[in-house]
Design a binder for these strands. Structure first.
Length: 230
DNA sequence: GGCCAGGACACCA
DNA sequence: TGGTGTCATGGC
């Protein structure tokens, strides 16, 4: 498939999603550090539960690396209890806060001054930050143009017949990088819209907005979405 | 009562 | 290198 065609498909999908869902203005956070915390807490968790955990952290005045570092692990785990995996995630937040202090003196501006590739590499060195979380931070907190690949994005691309040859994070990410202009606000909205579409169309019991995916498929490749696989 | 949600890591073959 | 088990709550 010619790259130009894929680019046009991706552009068409974006326009239709924007028309259907409207601007999302992600990430839902009050500060870049809160974006980072949220990106870790939302790992395999419903955002509604993450919001409760973040509210607890805010109320405890713990939404800063300095305070997180000094907070006992058990206390931190109790605060983030609602979002699940609280012991594992407490350790991840601790690791992040310690790393940020040791390497960047808690200065996010210094961290975000790094070139996107280097920033990603740095973030991946932190325990608990994998590819998706690193890219979420790079895009939504640092404002650099990398495309976030999550389970919804994989599902949607697969159903649109755009699954990469190499079924890997890098494979999916290359589809966006190689066929769209690198633009952070655009990638920001696009990924947010894919998540909303995914919530509606990638579940076993698609709700009404599944028709949105069908409409996208009809015009994008003249076909219909493939059924979800468990 | 079962299923699922904006993953990452350790371990093993 | 790829597959599997583990971490765990809250809403529907």
């Amino acid at each position: 498939m010619a790259d130009q065609v894929v680019g046009e498909q991706l552009g068409d999908i974006y326009r239709r999603l924007l028309e259907y869902y409207g601007l999302q203005h992600w990430w839902p956070a009050r500060s870049p550090f809160e974006v980072i915390v949220g990106a870790i807490l939302t790992q395999s968790a419903a955002w509604s539960n993450v919001e409760k955990a973040i509210a607890n952290l805010r109320e405890a005045g713990a939404l800063s690396p300095e305070v997180l570092r000094d907070l006992p692990l058990t206390r931190l785990a109790a605060l983030i209890h609602p979002c699940g995996y609280y012991n594992a995630k407490a350790f991840k937040l601790k690791s992040l806060a310690i790393w940020l202090g040791n390497h960047y003196k808690d200065n996010l501006s210094r961290l975000f001054a790094l070139e996107a590739g280097k920033l990603r590499e740095e973030l991946l060195s932190v325990h608990g930050i994998g590819e998706e979380t690193a890219d979420s931070i790079t895009l939504y907190a640092a404002g650099k143009p990398v495309f976030v690949i999550d389970a919804y994005t994989r599902c949607i691309l697969g159903r649109l017949g755009l699954k990469p040859e190499r079924d890997s994070y890098a494979g999916y990410q290359a589809i966006f990088r190689e066929n769209l202009a690198a633009d952070a606000p655009f990638f920001n909205e696009y990924h947010a819209l894919l998540v909303y579409l995914g919530k509606d169309a990638c579940r076993t019991k698609p709700r009404c907005a599944g028709c949105c995916l069908n409409a996208i498929c009809r015009t994008a490749r003249g076909g219909t979405p493939e059924p979800d696989k468990p």
